[in-house]
Amino acid sequence: MSSIRLSNINLRFPLYRDSSRSLKRSLLEAGKAVSRSRTISTDGGHTVVNALNNVTCNIEHGERIGLIGTNGAGKSTLLRVLAGIYEPTSGDIKVEGRVNALLNIGLGSDPDATGYENILLRGLYMGLHPKEIEKLAPAIAEFSELGEFLHVPVRTYSAGMGMRLSFAIATATHPDILLMDEWIMAGDRRFLQKARERVDSFVSRSQILILASHSPQILAQWCTRLFWMDSGSIVMEGETDAVLKQYETGEPPASPSDTQQLTTLAS
């Protein structure tokens, strides 16, 4: 049984090199709706990003969780923490189950290598043995519908083709927990439908999907529970419809966890 427990996860990281550019970029990422002083502060000359603040949540098997929020709200950062890429500065994290993450359309692919070679490479990244990947390759090729394109370097692929390949690889390996970032939108309607069916069967086997997006439509279709993230905190969580309704208003409800987080920051 897969499950995810996060308790008071904080993630702060200093921005070092080319600070003006990085700062500018992070300000842009923080988005206009964000109160900047809460996200970015300076500490001994370094610019520190408070990427996640006291994130606490429980996710049980069979759940389809959506993360909603503006750019820079911390959705992708949270996915990276769940994938074990970023280690939180403080807090406890317990993830049970094998995690596959589709965070970036490239997924560390080698642009000059062919589609087939990338199936091997990404299978390796996910911890599979070359022999296991060989067995999975035909199924991946079929699901991706890339056909002859699999013999061509992936640098020639369109965004949608790249997404199809990445999705096919990530789901063919039967992860317990699937993390996806919003680029899933790159697929065409028919493939999205197919992808959703695969995710449905996947979640019905008691596995977990976590999808980050700023698109209410996609989240309404794919998810049963939403976390609304803002400035690195979960400001609201609940049933998809309820959270989306509140999200449309643009104002998160004043919740106990929110005030608690503000006092923690002030101290």
């Binding site: 990276r80 994938a83 074990g84 890429i85 995690v99 993450a101 965070l103 970036n104 490239g106 997924l107 560390g108 692919s109 990244y125 996910m126």
Partner: peptide, 9 residues
């Protein structure tokens, strides 16, 4: 970089 930020390794 591209691998490190996508997959835990």
């Amino acid at each position: 970089e591209s691998i490190m930020l996508q997959v835990r390794m």
